[in-house]
Design a binder for these strands. Structure first.
Lengths: 333, 333
DNA sequence: ACAAATAATTTACGCGCGTAAAGATTTAGC
DNA sequence: GCTAAATCTTTACGCGCGTAAATTATTTGT
């Protein structure tokens, strides 16, 4: 930087100031620096920069499982917003393992990030590690809430999701059974079950929950195996099934296919199946999956904006924002 | 580190040496240091460490599109192998955009990574940027090859993939048409088409390629729309279709559903559809998709091992390793 | 055109660690 | 118990940059 400043005819502290915030120097100076950068292809050493800065421009994005297209999609969205605001995002996937999540937070700590966007594992999340982390780094929790940690929570309104689609299913045919994992990793699943129970009672129907065994993140396979069992034991009494999420629904669709059950809302169909999330593949199942769509854009925008506001000093009390979902009526129900 | 060394009763240079490589100090010393780390919860500042080290422990993993479950899966696999070897992997997705890929390589350059595992965009990759990058950083190219850049290439044997499944399809029914994108981003697609043409000639059949329009990375939608067209125009003359990849096949399955065509190998089915890649969802389509599976494990192991060997000094000439695929016979064909 | 405000320069120090060199200490081999 | 080898300690410097303080140059308002 010393040399670069010399050949550019500008002092090193000014160059340093420019890299900290290009807007902080006079326009004429900025143009000279930028011309020199172009000419000499100089870029400052990231390690040396971040060593002394109290605040880096790093932002960590942590999701429970990067191989889940839902999280991959929202991570991609958040990543772009960070770049647009001049931050350097780094992606992390917890691989569904609490220990891995803790490791990520630990190593993130030594990266001195300006802020972190975290979708916690949920049930498996180590409260102590997370709490300590949130004290050190401005952390925005999204997707699934863990107590009132961090600066805010942003996610979807799971009660509304489930009551909305339950309403739709009741209006258009037999009331749905609810198909879910017995021990879901994600706390949203509990909200959805609860919402289903409430909605069914409100409509004057008897709720009917089918909880299937299985751990881990291979939801499709869990849905498929659970579906086989449920079909064999005749648990789908009403001919309509609302799944706790789309991935379970995709597995259940496979089970129905394998059992020779025709899925859909036509006269000749044996069963209606609906999901929740609008998973990127839900549109391409056979039949296309009726589901409730997250407002990806709204969630990621609110999450990013809230974090940036907190980083840039706007301290506000902890808050929780939940966006409503949109019903997507397709052929499966 | 000064203070930590003092309270631990060990000199700072030795502590520094320990963090560089725990094996490089005497066992008794290592135990004392590790006990002290446990006690005082000390960890060195990453930025200061990497500033002076000629070689960091960072490894970059770059894939064209993180929201594609295929790449998400292989990235996850590679990530784990890096961690196991004591490296710090960082994930990057190019979002399908050449400019973004170049940006990633550029910013990776300033991270002084020990090595990089790169799955290039392919056709869109900026040759000049990549070449310059490969000169500065040990780079292993995987999935799709770009000239003979980097230290080596590791991927799947696309010729074998297609000839193998073409063989199977010809033996079990009518010979397949080949369903692909007209302008695929990935060079593997060209190999597969070529392999199809060769295989069909070898079997004495007339090859029949259906190239559909569409750019970007939304392969399912491209397959669906292309499928609608092809069905309307009666292009699937033989009643068997081999798709260039599983994502196109998934879209085509949706198109068939929407057109009322029954897919599968049963007597009452109108069309057989097969894919290639064994996409994580291929098992859950309706019907489950017959496809050729990558040897994920072998590819990622070979890729990681080759990179680690190069980093640790074992210089070997550029090489190309391609693993054969395994035919997965499911219900769609 | 002049004072006040703004921006850039000069000078200087420190961040937390890597690392080299020389000397002191411990260990291994016999 | 001795020597050679391996390891550790002491000392010292530098990496590439952030940043504070004092000074000087430039711009702005009137």
């Amino acid at each position: 930087m010393e040399e670069f400043a010399a050949v550019s005819g500008i002092s090193r502290p000014t160059v340093s100031k420019y890299f900290h915030d290009p807007e902080s120097v006079r326009t004429s100076t900025r143009e000279r620096i930028e011309a020199a950068i172009e000419k000499y292809d100089y870029r400052p050493n990231i390690y040396a920069m971040n060593q002394n800065r109290k605040l880096t421009k790093n932002v960590g994005i942590v999701v429970p499982y990067l191989a889940d297209p839902f999280f991959a999609e929202i991570a991609r969205n958040l990543e772009q917003r960070c770049i647009d605001e001049g931050y350097r995002p780094t992606l992390y996937g917890s691989h569904g393992e609490p220990a891995h999540e803790s490791d990520i937070l630990d190593s993130l700590l030594s990266l001195k990030p300006a802020g972190v966007l975290l979708a916690p594992l949920g049930r498996g999340t180590d409260r102590r590690v997370l709490e300590r982390f949130c004290k050190a780094v401005p952390t925005l929790i999204f997707d699934s809430n863990v107590e009132e940690f961090g600066i805010a929570f942003v996610g979807s309104d799971n009660y509304q999701f489930t009551s909305h689609i339950t309403d739709y299913l009741c209006r258009t045919g037999e009331p749905p059974s609810f198909f879910e994992m017995k021990t879901p990793a994600n706390p949203n699943a509990h909200r959805r079950r609860q919402s289903y129970l409430t909605a069914m009672e409100d409509f004057g129907y008897e709720p009917h929950v089918i909880s299937v065994e299985g751990g881990g993140w291979e939801f499709e396979e869990i849905g498929r195996l659970g579906g086989h069992n449920a079909i064999e034991q005749g648990l789908f009494t009403t001919g309509t099934v609302l799944c706790s999420n789309d991935r379970l629904a995709i597995g259940l669709l496979t089970a129905c296919y394998e059992k020779g059950l025709r899925v859909g809302r036509g006269e000749d169909c044996a069963i209606r199946i609906a999901g929740q999330d609008n998973h990127p593949y839900a549109r391409f199942t056979c039949p296309p999956l009726t589901t409730v769509a997250h407002d990806y854009d709204a969630v990621s925008k609110e999450a990013a904006d809230t974090l940036f506001a907190a980083i840039e000093g706007t301290l506000s009390p902890w808050s929780s924002t939940r966006f409503e979902g949109k019903l997507l009526m397709r052929d499966s129900a």
